[in-house]
């Protein structure tokens, strides 16, 4: 996680530097009065590198990937929930009340 996050920060810095370099390049073009034909090589390389690093960080930094397979150990359904909407109260609990009798809701004061 730490490594991926550091890579992400580095990638972000590279992207920022690419932006800065582009602005500088445009300023230089204005001085020498040339037409803008395309970004310089170092900016393109920086952009590609930043993209790759940020992508890496996006995949590695947040958390582990979760399984989407229905039969994987995390997703495997082992039991159905009790059908609580149809819960009925006349069961053995009436004859065998739970042991501790001192349960009591204290009134709110």
């Amino acid at each position: 996680m730490g490594f991926g996050f550091a890579l992400g920060v580095f990638g972000g810095l590279i992207l920022a530097h690419a932006a800065y370099a582009t602005i500088q390049y445009r300023g230089m073009l204005k001085i020498v009065e040339e037409e803008f034909s395309g970004p310089p090589m170092n900016v393109v390389v920086e952009l590609l590198l930043g993209l790759a690093l940020c992508m890496w960080a996006g995949l590695a930094a947040p958390t582990k990937f979760l399984s989407i397979l229905p039969d994987s150990d995390e997703n495997r359904i082992v039991s159905l929930p009790t059908n609580l909407d149809f819960m009925i109260f006349n069961h053995r609990g009436r004859v065998f009340p739970s042991s501790d009798a001192e349960l009591k809701l204290k009134s709110k004061s």
Binding site: P97, S98, L105
Partner: peptide, 21 residues
């Protein structure tokens, strides 16, 4: 939740207090 659980355990006075609240 406690009220329903209390009914299930036949602790009716607890359930009654919860419902009253």
């Amino acid at each position: 939740q406690v009220a329903i659980a209390a009914m299930d355990c036949q602790k009716l006075d607890v359930a009654k207090d919860c419902i009253a609240t």
